[in-house]
Nucleic acid binder design. Structure first.
Length: 417
RNA sequence: GUGGGAUUAGUUCAGUUGGCCUAGAGCGCUGGUUUGUGGCACCAGAUAUCCUGGGUUCGAAUCCCAGAUCCCACCCCA
């Protein structure tokens, strides 16, 4: 036990990979059904992209990034999330000239240097998507329904959708001033963090877990009540669209999201089961981000889903992911001559896309049978002198024990049906 | 950054007031139960720097000190 996986990293073992495959497949399918295409972006970018994109006052950027200098002296950062990289790619590849909206999804690993907890890793996986060029609110409702349908297809139930609007820069600035005026007389009685937030980002004070229960905080003016007319209309329209489709939601005025780029719509899909890390999926609109990263003013919206949290939740809900066993048949050999025949048959089967296995360790017949039984391979065929002489073999279906006589050169046909 | 818990075989764990520990068990693994039909059962077997380094002691998995690693919670987030 000399080496161990690094803190916050984890092996995804063969025994559980099928869940990941299933989730990835379903997510891609749902995205495709909405017209999203996959994009694959690099694992690292220049540090500046994240500072500018994610926001250099956020926790993520100030203390959680994996940043290092490469041999050319450039500051490089392992992506802490996916949006910034996709935005960079959108601009760099001139995607603004594609028909709007430009819709892309991804499945990535992301890196944040954090203390570990249940459902929180230093290297973790996200499914996400981004849509550019549409101010919505139809597209806001669309991406929310992507998540909704995805959960449905996976079989997840009781995931609460919380939505909020944090307005555009202009109404948020006005609101921040108002909030400061409101909190000013009370700051001294609040927690240290809130005293810092008061100057930097008063909006976050509302979200505070320490002071959150206090009357002062609960009675604080809520941004959602002070949206400008455009933002209000936008939010009302989103709610209406969700109502029409029949997606249930809760308005949570306290959602502010941790990344600076959000504007207007923000949302979270929350569970009670995933430790305290209840947020399985979070997202929102970022109308200023493309411009902020050097592109033309372009509205955008997206979300990211934590795959580890998704799977934890699925497990908590007792959801079974189907395995597709790729190996269909096991050949037990009784002699050297039989093993040669088996080698030929296996080569033929595999060439035709039919998975098969046979003994590789010179095991006794009994041991081969034991292996066949325990491995869960659905079919079994024993080949010895009899089979070589008659050219026929009994293929046994392992789960019910039934046997079918098949000619050696018809095994493919038999297994293909 | 702040707190709490843990660390003994591949894995889950047991290990009495420090001596019977030459460290055990379940599961898993390998083989066998007359080389022609599996999962079960039975038998046999392999596998452990008892996290590391110091210390106390006639004697340490067990007590003391330091460190490492992991987990959980706060904060924040996916």
């Amino acid at each position: 036990m000399r080496y161990a996986a690094q803190k916050g990293t984890k092996d995804i073992l063969p025994a559980e990979i099928y869940k990941w495959h299933k989730a990835e497949r379903v997510f891609a399918d749902v995205c495709h059904d909405f017209g999203y295409e996959e994009i694959r972006i690099p694992t690292f970018e220049q540090t500046d992209l994240f500072q500018r994109g994610v926001g250099d006052t956020t926790d993520v950027v100030t203390k959680e990034m994996y940043t290092f200098n490469d041999k050319g002296g450039r500051s490089i950062t392992l992506r802490p999330e996916g949006t910034a990289g996709v935005v960079r790619s959108y601009i760099e590849n001139g995607m603004a000239s594609l028909p709007s909206p430009v819709r892309m999804f991804y499945s990535i690993t992301a890196f944040r240097y954090e203390k570990m907890q249940k459902g929180r890793m230093r290297e973790f996986h996200q499914f996400g998507l981004e849509a550019f060029g549409s101010e919505g609110p139809a597209i806001d409702a669309e991406i929310i329904s992507v998540v909704d349908i995805f959960f449905k297809k996976i079989g997840l139930k009781n995931i609460k959708l919380c939505i909020n609007s944090i307005g555009c820069p202009s109404c948020r600035n006005k609101y921040n001033e108002m909030l400061k005026d409101y909190f000013r007389p009370h700051v001294s009685t609040m927690c240290e963090d809130c005293q810092a937030r008061f100057e930097k980002n008063p909006l976050r004070m509302i979200d505070c877990k320490i002071d959150g229960g206090k009357e002062v905080v609960q009675n604080a003016p809520r941004l959602i009540d002070y949206l400008c007319d455009d933002c209000k209309t936008h939010f009302e329209a989103l709610k209406n669209k969700l109502d029409v489709i029949g997606i249930r939601y809760e308005i949570d005025p306290n959602i502010v999201r941790g990344l600076d780029y959000y504007t207007r719509t923000v949302f979270e899909f929350v569970s009670e089961n995933v430790g305290t890390q209840g947020t399985i999926c979070g997202g929102g609109r970022y109308d200023g981000l493309v411009e902020n990263c050097g592109g033309a003013p372009t509205p955008g919206i997206g979300f990211a889903m934590g795959v580890e949290r998704l799977l934890l939740e699925a497990e908590a809900q007792g959801i079974e992911f189907e395995k597709n066993d790729s190996v269909k048949i096991y050949f037990a050999g009784m002699s050297d001559a039989a093993n040669e025949e088996i080698a030929k048959i296996c080569y033929e089967l595999r060439s035709n896309g039919i998975g098969c296995e046979t003994d590789l360790m010179n095991r006794s017949f009994k041991a081969q049978m034991k292996y066949a039984g325990k491995s869960g391979i659905p079919y079994l065929a024993v080949i010895g002198d009899d089979e070589l002489n008659t050219g026929k073999v009994n293929i046994k279906k392992m789960d019910d024990g039934s046997q079918t006589e098949v000619e050696l050169d018809k095994i493919i046909v038999f297994l293909k049906r």
